[in-house]
């Protein structure tokens, strides 16, 4: 019942998010031949002093067009579109999950239903999780078709792995937002807290000396590039002992935030 209600509330936002992701995807892929030509002629990207921008510049202007295209997709599909739009969608969907119930004075009604609080949390969380992750897979699958329109290939498996990591990162933000939504009584306060956190994290990411401490470091070009080029395998993504295991870290952080949300909801009083 609660999951169905949540789905009805978020379905249009999920559709809008899917369309935005797709609209961001199509032109950057179809315009690639012109962009690649410009990149070959320009030395701007290689002359940048900021290290991660320099790496991106070198990656997307590689002499081998297929390699350059994979790097372009890593930057545009994942680092730009999924990270930013996906995070925004997760925050938008997550802020109201519980704070809106409090504002509408339906929180007590919900807690009084004969279902456990863990069920309430899960039934509200998973439709949102589906809404923010499924479009990532759909849009990236469509990228394979758009790439064929410009006579280039995108490897399906590597694209899927990249999508898994991107979806994990977006889930992290959704569970973080859900936790804050349980704790805060006003939806605007949830948005302010998560928004402020995201802005600070972006600021940290753009500051070279402290970049390793940014959440966005967990899902940037340095991870997506090797995944798409096949240099990071699925095992390495998930194995924190023998591989980098960064996807496991992201999923673990998401699980911790979900656990905190559950703990807060268990203790919540109307």
């Amino acid at each position: 019942m609660i999951a169905g209600k949540t789905w009805r509330e978020v379905r249009w936002m999920a559709l809008a998010y899917l369309l935005i992701l797709e609209l961001l995807c199509i032109p950057v892929l179809l315009l690639w031949p012109e962009i690649y030509g410009d990149l070959q002629r320009s030395t701007l990207m290689r002359s940048l002093n900021i290290d991660f921008l320099k790496r991106i510049g070198e990656g997307v202007s590689d002499k081998r067009e297929q390699v350059a295209y994979l790097n372009w997709c890593a930057v545009m599909l994942f680092f730009r579109s999924t990270n930013l739009v996906g995070t925004a969608a997760a925050v938008l969907l997550g802020t109201g999950l519980f704070a809106r119930e409090r504002e509408a004075q339906t929180f007590e009604f919900l807690l009084a239903r004969p279902v456990s609080r863990s069920h309430v949390l899960w039934a509200k969380f998973w439709p949102c999780a589906l809404c923010v992750t499924l479009p990532i897979f759909l849009v990236n699958a469509s990228a394979i078709y758009w790439s064929r329109c410009i006579d280039l290939d995108l490897p399906a498996w590597e694209l899927f792995l990249g999508s898994v990591h991107a979806a994990s990162f977006v889930l992290l933000f959704l569970s973080l937002t859900t936790w804050i939504s349980v704790v805060c009584r006003v939806q605007a306060h949830v948005a302010a807290w998560v928004g402020a956190l995201a802005i600070v994290q972006i600021g940290v990411y753009l500051t070279q000396r402290i970049r390793p401490y940014s959440l966005f470091r967990l899902a940037d070009f340095d991870w997506y590039g090797p995944i798409l080029s096949g240099n990071t395998t699925a095992a390495q993504m998930f194995d924190p002992v023998h591989g980098p295991g960064f996807t496991t870290y992201v999923l673990a952080a998401a699980a911790v935030c979900y656990g905190l949300a559950w703990r807060a909801l268990r203790r919540a009083e109307p």
Partner: peptide
């Protein structure tokens, strides 16, 4: 809660 029906003091209905 399985055997109790509760009307909260604040009218909790989904608008």
């Amino acid at each position: 809660r399985r055997r109790v029906s509760y009307l909260p003091g604040e009218t909790g209905v989904y608008l």
